[in-house]
């Protein structure tokens, strides 16, 4: 079998293992929806137009960055990565399988959150902007997956994974127009948030939701996310480790 079909096969096994742990699977999908409901209760139904694309961003970042950084660190500590390294499976095909699975979950989350927003809060899915939205989602999935793998290389052991992963992503989500609207934030904080990728992902999704097909492709935002993705790839190549660290 060539590497590509091995990678696809690997996605299948990852996916199968994922659904065999129903509580974990359930909360993977319930978590963003719980946030969505709470925000809409707190800020009123008018805010749904903001929080639907915002929670899509949160869902994608969780499924790729958070999930990969944690799962890969745990797999490394359990010796799963080292075992794979001793087989002829190309390392990239294994990681592609992991990423592929994360992306499948990410897209499922997008569909669920978008559906939830449309049905419960009447936030229309911008079908006219679908190609641009898919582009933004694919680029973001790739970039946040690469960043997740890079961060796993910085995490010393599985016990430290949740603390480090949350500490790196939650503050960024708070200053990126995802959990909190940034209109009244001090200027310097806005500048900081614009240096980071989540803000650009959020801006792109907000625009597409707000203006539909009229928004066009948000090339500037896509460009920044790609740049961060490239930083992620380079960092992952330098930092990633197949051996458990003790």
């Amino acid at each position: 079998m060539n590497g590509v079909s091995l990678a696809i096969r690997q996605i299948g096994y990852e996916n199968r293992a994922f659904w065999r742990n129903p509580p974990a699977a359930f909360f993977t999908f319930a978590f963003p929806l719980i946030f969505m409901v709470i925000f809409n209760v707190l800020f009123g139904a008018d805010a749904a137009g903001f929080f639907t694309p915002a929670i899509i961003v949160f869902g994608v970042v969780s499924a790729t960055y958070t999930n990969l950084a944690m799962a890969v660190t745990i797999a490394r500590d359990e010796g799963i990565l080292k075992r794979i390294r001793g087989t002829p499976l190309p390392p990239w095909a294994y990681l592609a399988g992991r990423i592929g699975h994360a992306v499948v979950i990410g897209f499922l989350l997008v569909a669920i959150v978008a559906g939830f927003g449309a049905l419960l809060y009447g936030v229309e899915v911008p079908w006219g902007a679908l190609p641009a939205m898919l582009l933004v989602l694919v680029v973001s999935c790739a970039a946040f997956s690469a960043l997740g793998l890079a961060v796993s290389g910085l995490i010393p052991n599985a016990d430290a994974a949740p603390a480090i992963v949350n500490a790196t992503i939650l503050p960024v989500l708070f200053i990126s127009n995802v959990f909190v609207q940034m209109e009244s934030a001090p200027e310097w904080l806005g500048t900081v948030s614009h240096l980071l990728p989540v803000r650009h992902f959020a801006n792109a999704m907000m625009d597409l939701y707000a203006s539909g097909a009229g928004a066009g492709v948000p090339w500037k935002e896509v460009g920044v996310i790609i740049l961060w993705g490239m930083i992620g790839v380079v960092a992952a190549l330098r930092l990633f480790s197949w051996e458990p660290r003790r």
Partner: peptide, 9 residues
Amino acid sequence: LQQTGVDEY
């Protein structure tokens, strides 16, 4: 190996 893991699910 002395210690290895496989996907337990």
